[in-house]
Simulated scan of single mutants.
Amino acid sequence: MKVLVTGGAGFIGSHIVDRLLEKGHQPVVLDNLSTGDEGYLHPEVPFYRMDVQSEAVDEVFRKEKPDAVIHQAAQSQVPRSIEAPIEDAQTNLLGTIRLLEGCRHHGAKKFIYASSAAVYGNPQDLPIDEEHPVSPLSPYGISKLTPERYIRVYQELYGLTYTIFRYANVYGIRQVPHGEGAVISIFVDRLLHDRPLTIFGDGKQTRDYIYVDDIARANVAALDRGDGETLNIGTGVRTSLNDLVETVESITGRKIEVEYGPDRPGDIKHSYFKIDRALKYLDWSPLTSLEQGLSRTLSYYGVKVK
């Protein structure tokens, strides 16, 4: 199957491309390299350097005629979305519509979309399931939620099959130390530079951390599963920031200096997913424990582990 991967030179997208190649698919990469890295690109994979909202996207569809699209490209920084909401919407909303139009006009049959836990806002119940009310707290959350509605309408109007993923906090190799959910990458960066870790609040706030390989596996599984579904992709396990620090200390055998600061306005205290629907509809489950994922990530970046 030929699959167009937007953001395919980036953190998550490059791992999806790796997985597609392993499974015998034909990936095509579209990425503007704003956060991606040309070093992650495979020489045998066609690459188009452009923004997803560019009119030239239609020519990529016309030339490559992909069977499916895995849409990972995004403006992913919540503060940036607040500072520049128009730019955020152009990338996340208009860029997605541009891709949907490419599918409509050139015959792609499946659209797999990376949404976010940010669409839920402040959780009313835990764990968060897919029926939880959506109430974004930032322009970023809005710009990830609104395309979900467009995608469903494109199925109704044009028969475009879809799977929507709402990601928990993704971490792992190739992640840049900024953007939504990048706390582990920030921790690694500070360890490499022997700088103390900064935690806002008491460190008891919890998140659901999922390793990037498990995210890649879910995306490839969705090529022929999960049609018409919106699925939480996480581990179903909640981990506090203090637990995260203790786990890193256990893996590295070194004491980590932590500086605690005031709570940040608007930060959610607790968030983790219920993932039963993903287990059912994808025939998928997260395989990488936090300890395993952290150990791989730290080792990759040259942090000594036990």
Rank of each mutant, 00 (worst) to 15 (best):
Y209N: 03
V245G: 04
G266Q: 01
F273P: 11
D263N: 12
I275N: 13
V220Q: 13
K280F: 11
L282I: 07
R225G: 00
S271F: 15
T239C: 10
A218K: 06
N232L: 09
L241K: 05
D263F: 13
N232T: 07
T239E: 07
Y260S: 03
T235Q: 10
A278N: 04
Y260K: 04
V220E: 12
E259S: 10
N232C: 04
D276A: 15
Y211Q: 01
L231Q: 09
A216M: 12
Y211E: 03
I256T: 05
L223W: 10
G266K: 02
D214C: 08
N242I: 00
R217S: 13
E259P: 00
R217I: 00
V248C: 07
K280W: 06
V237A: 08
A278L: 04
L241E: 08
D243M: 10
G234N: 03
L241H: 09
I215R: 01
T247V: 14
L231Y: 06
T235I: 12
Y209T: 00
T230H: 01
D214Q: 05
P262E: 15
V237W: 02
L241P: 01
V212I: 12
I233A: 04
S271P: 00
V248T: 07
R264F: 11
V248K: 00
T239H: 09
A222M: 09
N232H: 12
V258T: 09
D276P: 03
I275C: 11
R207Q: 12
S240W: 07
H270Y: 12
